[in-house]
Design a protein around this nucleic acid. Structure first.
Length: 227
DNA sequence: GGCCAGGACACCA
DNA sequence: TGGTGTCATGGC
């Protein structure tokens, strides 16, 4: 069993990086677009795509849904998979218009569990994207699990490398207070930390969490001869 | 020039 | 149900 707990890990990260005030985006709608566009793509490319949309003054549900798909695809081109992502944005906008009249406020009134089911029913919205929308755009207590979270908690000896989304989410939510603010910043800390050092340093030798990494290494994962 | 990045879906065995 | 292929640009 790892000695460090998710709570301690969060405390260490927060004391090092400070509160992150996530998600990057000026409005809930921009955050939703970002959540779709960042699928398997670096954030710098997402920023370019959103800038393209802003540049043509199209950052509104009504403008985007009226736009030809090919035009939308050309705007989000820098984020990669642009044909797919244009369809995904269109699918969300159709849902958003039909169910909530394109109103964030109306969508916010819906309870977390049924709203999550609705989001997951939209083509192109998987668990990570749904939870990102719920937590960061709609201020609901949904903990986002992503490749960074999986990588970090595997390296700390908490979970298997191939742990499923639900397994990791259940593991962490069982060990953290249920709080939108905490879930928001917890995921932000994981991302900022992994972008900072973990990505290219498999042994976490220069990692902010180096002490925790050592504590966290379970006996099974510990290299032979090391104590 | 190769690898990777804050996924999701379709298809197949 | 799990594995594999596909979608694609941009930075390092």
């Amino acid at each position: 069993m790892p000695v460090s707990t998710p709570r301690i890990i969060y405390r260490v990260l927060r004391s090092h990086y400070g509160h992150q005030h996530w998600w990057p985006g000026d409005t809930p709608f921009e955050i939703i677009l970002g959540a779709i566009l960042t699928q398997s793509c670096s954030w710098s490319n997402v920023e370019k795509a959103i800038m393209n949309i802003k540049h043509v003054r199209a950052l509104s549900p009504k403008t985007l849904i009226a736009m030809p798909l090919s035009r939308l695809a050309s705007l989000v081109r820098p984020s990669g998979y642009f044909n797919q992502k244009a369809k995904k944005i269109r699918a969300f906008l159709s849902f958003f218009s039909a169910q909530y009249g394109s109103s964030i406020a109306r969508m916010k009134k819906k309870r977390l569990a049924p709203l999550r089911e609705e989001l997951l029913s939209i083509w192109g919205v998987g668990k990570e994207t749904a939870d990102s929308i719920l937590c960061y755009a709609l201020s609901k207590p949904a903990l986002v699990i992503d490749a960074y979270t999986r990588r970090l908690f595997h390296r700390l000896g908490h979970t298997a490398e191939d742990a499923s989304y639900d397994e990791l989410q259940d593991y962490l939510t069982a060990r953290l207070p249920r709080s939108t603010a905490l879930y928001n910043d917890f995921h932000a800390q994981v991302v900022i930390h992994c972008k900072d050092v973990c990505r290219t340093k498999p042994k976490c030798d220069r990692c902010t969490l180096s002490k925790i990494c050592r504590w966290g290494m379970s006996a099974r994962n510990r290299p032979a001869g090391k104590k």
